[in-house]
């Protein structure tokens, strides 16, 4: 397997370079999964941890906020580990105190960074929930939501999608939203069962 430098990995993540992302996945996912499984999580938890952490790194690298003093993997492991401990802490308040100072400050040693990372991870969890479930929707609903997201009016969407009336578009919008909410709910129910 080819080896990539930290800079190349970060650039590859930002550019969605499949070879680099495959490298990161092949090299690091198994150990992250092993860590999560050892600490009471499931495979699904591990996959969520991996995704959210990678997206945080992507976001930081994209905006130029990330200047690594260590290797990519040292940093990435820290974020993954923190993400999992945060989930444990959030799901069980009694474990909060145990993890709070011992592990959170392990990252870079100062609280502001941890607060910022908390926010970034929460944001990525939400984005994952939206994007994953959006991708499970029918193509028609995806198209409709994309047009709504672009800010088109109901009249414009009706024309764009060749619907018979604006009333019909409203109905479609409601149905698509119902589909989305159902999937989000199922997703959360399944996560809670694990």
């Amino acid at each position: 397997m080819a080896k990539f430098s930290t800079e190349r990995i970060l650039a590859g993540i930002v550019e969605n370079d499949r070879i680099v992302i495959q490298y990161v996945y092949d090299k690091y996912f198994a150990s992250i999964k092993s860590y999560v499984l050892k600490h009471g999580g499931s495979e699904t938890d591990a996959w969520d941890v991996f995704q959210d952490s990678l997206m945080v790194v992507y976001e930081q690298a994209r905006t130029g906020d990330l200047i690594l003093k260590n290797t990519f993997i040292t940093y990435f492991y820290s974020v993954c580990k923190y993400r999992w401990l945060k989930q444990l802490r959030d799901s069980s308040p009694s474990q909060h105190e145990e993890f709070e100072y011992k592990n959170e400050t392990e990252l870079y040693g100062y609280n502001n960074y941890v607060v910022q990372l908390d926010e970034e991870l929460e944001q990525e969890e939400r984005v994952r929930l939206y994007q994953e479930n959006f991708l499970k929707l029918s193509k028609e609903c995806q198209k409709l939501f994309k047009l709504l997201a672009k800010g088109l009016t109901t009249k414009e969407i009706t024309e764009e999608l060749n619907y018979k009336s604006t009333g019909f578009t409203y109905k479609k919008r409601r149905l698509c939203k119902e589909q989305l909410l159902k999937k989000i709910k199922e997703n959360n129910d399944n996560t809670l069962k694990l």
Partner: peptide, 15 residues
Amino acid sequence: DFFGAIQDEHKMALR
């Protein structure tokens, strides 16, 4: 929030 998430095409492609 939802519209923001699905409009982020780079992140969507990465996902």
